[in-house]
């Protein structure tokens, strides 16, 4: 039930908000990539969203922009929730999309952004230690991208024990 918070955000950064909706207490703002950092800092310091619940991403393969980075915020004081989405293009000629890190605002973003990087190949610029967190170093590609073949394994070890 944080329509008021969403309104505050839209009033403060009218140019940064691509779209927003508020249905049944589910409040979402789609924010441009460039203004993400300002918006997040405003939400944390002024509106009071002191808890970053999750950072994740979605791959809308075939659509432009292809990726969406999703942040869920919560205020421990009021209990309000807010969802922020950032559309990210797949970079031209480059392997991955890029968006600014928020790990300096909420330390919990450190590992969650590493997970989003590992699974979707989204680069978080300014991240202190952007390495894979779930898959092993030898793994090539990003498994939750829609163009990754779902059963393509990259084994570290295989042995044959047939006695013949």
């Amino acid at each position: 039930m944080s329509k008021a918070d969403l309104d505050k955000l839209v009033a403060q950064y009218p140019a940064a908000i691509v779209s927003s909706h508020s249905n049944f207490g589910d409040d979402t703002a789609v924010v441009t990539k460039e203004s993400l950092k300002d918006v997040m800092r405003f939400l944390r310091d002024t509106v009071g969203f002191d808890l970053l619940v999750s950072v994740t991403a979605a791959d809308y393969f075939g659509r432009e922009p292809r990726f969406e980075v999703v942040y869920h915020l919560r205020s421990m004081a009021t209990g309000n929730r807010l969802r922020i989405k950032v559309p990210v293009h797949e970079e031209e000629g480059g392997p991955s999309a890029e968006v600014a890190t928020v790990s300096d605002l909420w330390p919990t973003a450190n590992w969650q952004e590493r997970e989003a990087y590992d699974m979707f190949g989204i680069k978080f610029s300014g991240h202190p230690d952007l390495r894979r967190i779930l898959m092993y170093e030898e793994f090539v590609g990003h498994p939750l991208r829609k163009d990754y073949p779902k059963e393509q394994r990259q084994p570290l070890i295989r042995r044959d024990y047939s006695l013949s």
Partner: peptide, 15 residues
């Protein structure tokens, strides 16, 4: 778990 991260049976690694 027929996917990218699961070994299809531990007999791929040990007898």
């Amino acid at each position: 778990y027929q996917n990218y991260n699961t070994v299809p049976g531990c007999d791929q690694v040990i007898p």
